[in-house]
Design a protein around this nucleic acid. Structure first.
Length: 238
DNA sequence: AACCGTGTCAACCGCCAGATA
DNA sequence: TTATCTGGCGGTTGACACGGT
């Protein structure tokens, strides 16, 4: 079956002006009427849904198009943690940012960090995204909400604990999983604890087989939760 | 200069709940 | 009571710009 094209149909300034005018006349609750009048006036066919989306996402309020500040991003992730994916509620707390802007930033951050984290890792070590519920695991959340400025080393040297792997696998429990038998390398996992990416840096011991995460107060090595690949083979986790 | 990967944004889509006929 | 309509919302897609190689 041929896929249906969904080429976006961009709005012109004239169309925006007309839509604003119509909303002014009829209010923002009567979209079928608005889109009918829109068609009669402009000759352009837009569905009620398209009109509403355009209004809500771009025209309704004064939109802040400035690049996101670090504080805003932190507030966004705090709010997401508090309210879940209720973007409309989050948007109300973030003046000038629309629901769409907030959603876009959130998902692009998640996607970026998944890509960075998975790069160079074996299939079993990777974060597989099915739904945002995996963020309920604090460890995965810390990885996926990491800021843009964090170094590649952070992702290279960070591995999932058994518990985090379980969380991910549970989302795919209905699917057949495969076990890679080629690599017997130990998995070095982060400790199960709350931290922010400001709390530590990765020590410069690139020649060592035991990457070390350090902070001003804490020093970790692989004495803590370490997941060995042989364990996985002997005790499948799914 | 060309290509590729990545990030951002607007628009689209599908689902759900409430209102109404 | 049921079917249909509508608005609201979360999640996804496609286009485009930009930077790195």
């Amino acid at each position: 079956m041929a896929s249906i094209s969904r080429k976006p149909k961009l709005w012109t300034v004239e169309q925006d002006d007309l839509l604003k005018q119509l909303v002014e006349n009829h209010g923002s609750q009567t979209w079928p009427m608005i889109c009918q009048e829109f068609l009669e006036t402009s000759g352009v066919k837009r569905t009620p849904k398209q009109c509403r989306d355009r209004w809500v996402n771009n025209l309704r309020s004064e939109k802040n198009d400035a690049p996101w500040k670090e504080e805003e991003v932190m507030i966004l992730f705090d709010n997401q943690s508090k309210y879940g994916n209720q973007w409309s509620i989050i948007a109300k707390e973030m003046k000038g940012r629309t629901e769409n802007q907030i959603k876009n930033l959130f998902y692009s951050t998640i996607r970026r960090n998944i890509r960075k984290f998975n790069k160079g890792k074996l299939d079993l070590e990777r974060i597989k995204f099915k739904s945002l519920s995996i963020l309920e695991n604090q460890e995965i959340r810390n990885i996926l909400t990491t800021r843009k400025s964090i170094s590649k080393n952070f992702f290279l040297k960070t591995f999932l604990t058994k518990e985090a792997v379980n969380v991910i696998q549970s989302q795919f429990s209905q699917q057949q999983s495969t076990v890679c038998t080629e690599n017997k390398t130990n998995y070095l996992a982060l400790p199960e604890m709350n931290f922010t990416t400001d709390d530590f840096y990765i020590s410069d011991d690139s020649g060592s087989s035991n990457p070390t995460f350090e902070s001003e107060d804490l020093l970790y090595d692989n004495d803590y939760t370490t997941l060995e690949f042989s364990d996985l083979l002997n005790n499948p986790i799914y």
